[in-house]
Structures are given as C-alpha cells and as structure tokens.
Design a binder for these strands. Sequence first.
DNA 1: ACTATATTTCGCGAGGAGACGAAATGAATA
DNA 2: TATTCATTTCGTCTCCTCGCGAAATATAGT
Lengths: 143, 143
Amino acid sequence: MNTSFLDSTVTIARALGHPARLRTIAMLRGGELCVCQITAVLKLAPSTVSAHLRELRRAGLTAERKEGRWVWVGLGEDPETRPWIDNALAGVAGDEQMLLDLALVEEIQKLPVEDLCRLGYEAAREKRRSQVGATRSKERNAP
Amino acid sequence: MNTSFLDSTVTIARALGHPARLRTIAMLRGGELCVCQITAVLKLAPSTVSAHLRELRRAGLTAERKEGRWVWVGLGEDPETRPWIDNALAGVAGDEQMLLDLALVEEIQKLPVEDLCRLGYEAAREKRRSQVGATRSKERNAP
DNA sequence: ACTATATTTCGCGAGGAGACGAAATGAATA
DNA sequence: TATTCATTTCGTCTCCTCGCGAAATATAGT
C-alpha cells in the first residue's frame, strides 16, 4: 500500500459519512447479512447498494464472504477500524431510523433468503404468511 | 435541533473525511491556533480554510473564540465528539504529513501572530531573524 | 447446455463539495 | 474618522458523489 495513515483515516471517515453506509454498519451489529437483505432494508437500487458496500469494504469497515450465489457482509475485524465502528454504533444508538432498520432486519431474517432476493420483501412475506398458515392448519388437523 | 442521531453522526464523520480538516484537528491537539496560523500550515486560500473551519464547527469538533481581530480555534469539548477526535488523532499518529504540520506549527508559534497574518510565513520569519540578530548583537555589546 | 438469478460493472444525469478571487464585514489603530 | 487588515461571505468553476437502469458476470438448478 502506498497510502498514508492520513489517507486511510480519511477513507474510513468518509465511508461512515453517508446515511446509507452508516445504517448498513448499524444493521450489521447483530451479525452477517446478505446483500439482498441489506438492499431490502435500505430500499435502494441493487447497484447503488453495491457501490456503498464497495466503499465500506475499501475502508476495511466490512468484510465479505461469498457463499454460492449470495454474498454475506459482516463487520470487519481490522483493529484499526474497530474503534470507528464502535463510535458509529454509539453515535446512532437510539436513532429512530436505525431502530426501524433493526426491526425490519428482524422481520427479514425470518424469510428464506432465496425468496427475499427473488421476490422482494413484500412478496416473500406474503408467501411465508400463506405457508405458515397452511402448516399451522395441518398441525391443528393432525395433532 | 431537528437533526437525528444519524444525521449528526454523519456530519461528524463527513467533517473528518477530508485531509485538510483532519490535519486541522491534528494540529489543534497541542492547543488553540489562530485562523491565519492554520491557513499558513494548510497553504490554502483563506476563504477555503474558512469553509473547512465552518464544517468542523458545525460538527461540534472545534470551538472558536474571537479575540480582537483574531479568531482562535480549539478542539471542541462536546463529549459526543470527543471519541471521534481521539480516533482521528490515533489514526493519523505517525503520519508523515501530520508530523510536517506539527513541526511547522512549532515554527509558526515562535512568530508574532500579527506578523504572520499580515506578512505571511516566509516574510514574518525573515523579519524575526533580523530582529533576533539585532537583539543578540546588543546583548553581546552590553552584557 | 440452458435458464434463472444474485451481484457487480458501466454509463449517464443531477446535485454537492471544494478550490479560488473579489467583495463584504468587523474590529483595532492612526 | 479614516485606514488597516483578519476573517467571512459570495459567485463561479470544476470535479466528485450518488442515484438509477441496462448490460455483464458468476453461480445454482434443470
């Protein structure tokens, strides 16, 4: 690397200096998320989310793991970036938007990833509702 | 204020996400500096420096104190921004550019502020050299 | 091999950031 | 009061960022 401490610090700070990226960091506190899950929460075009994730990765704030068709994103382990992540998380603690995001993440994690990616959040949720309903009916009929 | 935690955190991170502003924060570690001193170190147009300082102030990272014609800038005391400042300082520790800046600050602080502002660094330094020379000659002649 | 699909890359347009010089402002000093 | 001068504001230019959709890439399933 030919980049100075100054440059890398600027890169980290800049990466955190955007609502979508900061929200992404906050979302990942609870563990890895798939790119399409993040996209569903941010409600941005996949190409836009991809660009944001590239910046976070470049700054060392996140790490990505490819598993089949899906890419799982998690917080980076780099000791240099960790205090920045902690600051960011502390800074947005209690933020309204962030709480909404976390609640949506909870909901989204109940859905199979393949459905969420293919159908989008609303449709995947609808599909799950009907399936769960059918399962519960069967359970009631055959105890 | 109608700004959320998310917004203010973004503002802080963005403010740190520029070399000139990050260097300014690093310069202020040793204490207050006058705007024209900061300008002399950054070697940017006064109007540009003014804009950078406005952003730092807006983010709560710095505080300004007006004293006559001069404006003295120091690190902010806001407990919310303090960890960010500490991160920034830790991040640029040992950076080459920052060390050059600190050395220049040392030199600049030896000059009277009024000379530095009016004449610029080089001329003020030259003026001081001749004055110190004269003083030392007098001291030698009248011990 | 072919299809489906999760993600990235590319190209574009709109808006913001950052640089400067010129002019305005505000506070000492003559 | 007039002047000097540190700093800010304003106008302008250029370049970068961020959004999108379309096309490319890569991987799983048929």
